[in-house]
Amino acid sequence: MRPLTLGRLFLRCGILAVVLFVVVVMALKLGAVQVSLYGLGRDLIRVLLHQSSGISTDYGMIVVDIRLPRILLAIVVGASLSVAGTSFQALLRNPLADPYVLGISSGGAVGAIIALMLENQLSFSPEFAGLITPFGAFLGAAITIAAVYFLGRREGQIDSTTLLLGGVITASFLNAIIMFLMSSLAGSNLRGGATYWMMGSLSTLPSKSLLYLLGIGFLVAAGAIYTTSSDLNLLLAGEKEAMHLGVDVRRVQILVYLAASILTGLAVSVSGAIGYVGLLVPHAMRMIFGSDHRMLLPAAALGGAIALVIADTIARTVVAPSELQVGAVTALVGAPFFIYLLRRRLA
């Protein structure tokens, strides 16, 4: 008998944080332009000391202004997707659930494609235009979140089976709309952008304020989910059983549903629907650390960040100076890994 203690929780998270740091340093170093570790360290210290003016080299500019924001974006998006996936797996009591199972990404895609079309029709100032697609995607995701919530209620309470069915149906309906919109874009130069967005990509550089917004959104939503982690452990056994063990099931379900949906919506609105991170990382972390959400949720956040930074680094280095799509990398690496875990569990 070795129950989880605060000390062990911190130790394990600390180890994951060190791994994340190493991965980030490697990701900063690797790329189309080679950077030495020494130069990297020197430039990073200058940034921390607010002496960015001292960085005169092109390398420094590439590292600080191009690679670093992209890595930070990968960290937030990876952590968000992974925490959202873990939460949906518990909420829906379904190990195959991922952040996109309830159609939030499809809603985001519809919003993004409509925004792309509008952006083309109307002329906006450049700095404003960059925000149109994320905003449209988030709006589409938010409308889907609300619609699926009302579909998934039974007798005033979320019912996990009804929610799952309602979400899956909503997703297929929205996917049909996406098909329709895509065929209407045939021959248009927007089609490439829409496809790119649907596959998921981290190549659109986020502005500093957008990064802040994402970071704060992640901390608030993931923190809210974390406060219910011991309730989620019991919710896995079923709604009735959790209620008889003292869980305020209705409150926990609404809170986790909303927070996990917002995490998904935020991630999808800046990076499109990057697949597999939100399905695989939670399972991998469960294999390593067990299914106690007090440990699993922070492990999933750090693991998701690590996985996506690695995937994105592969995406931008393997065929440098061109780029693979990060969604393709996560699927290529993720699918065999998932099959391996599945077979290992069955064996």
Binding site: P95, A237, L245, S291
Partner: peptide
């Protein structure tokens, strides 16, 4: 209840500790 379903397996002592929630 009649049956207690388990999505992810747990140890007996972990299961009993759920009663302390």
């Amino acid at each position: 209840q009649q049956e207690s379903r388990l999505l992810f397996p747990s140890r007996v002592w972990e299961f009993v500790l759920q009663g302390r929630h």
